[in-house]
Amino acid sequence: MKNFIDRLNKAFENRIRLGIMSALMVNASVDFLSLKDLLNVTDGNLASHITALEKMEYIAVKKEFVGKKTKTTYMATKLGKMEFNHHLKALEDMIRMSE
């Protein structure tokens, strides 16, 4: 059992991070506002989790100008997708094991 717990990625233990990654897995890119609406969190909360995922290089950030405003979009990196899939696999295995 210990072995399985080790396989879970600590970075995805937090629900908001899990949510961010889930959305980025099925969309080429998602912007900040959409993520905020989707996860129903405050700006600051979302930003801090995004920064954490960015530091681990699980997500990439793209900033562009739309008129005068900046629009920030995020996408999952190859590493992020791989890690997330490992995490999912570990979750599934653990559920199966305890059946």
């Binding site: 889930s22 099925v26 989707l38």
Partner: peptide, 14 residues
């Protein structure tokens, strides 16, 4: 519960 949350977000976002 985590798995169902992941599924729900994937559905709602795409």
């Amino acid at each position: 519960q985590q798995i169902s949350e992941i599924k729900s977000i994937m559905e709602r976002s795409s």
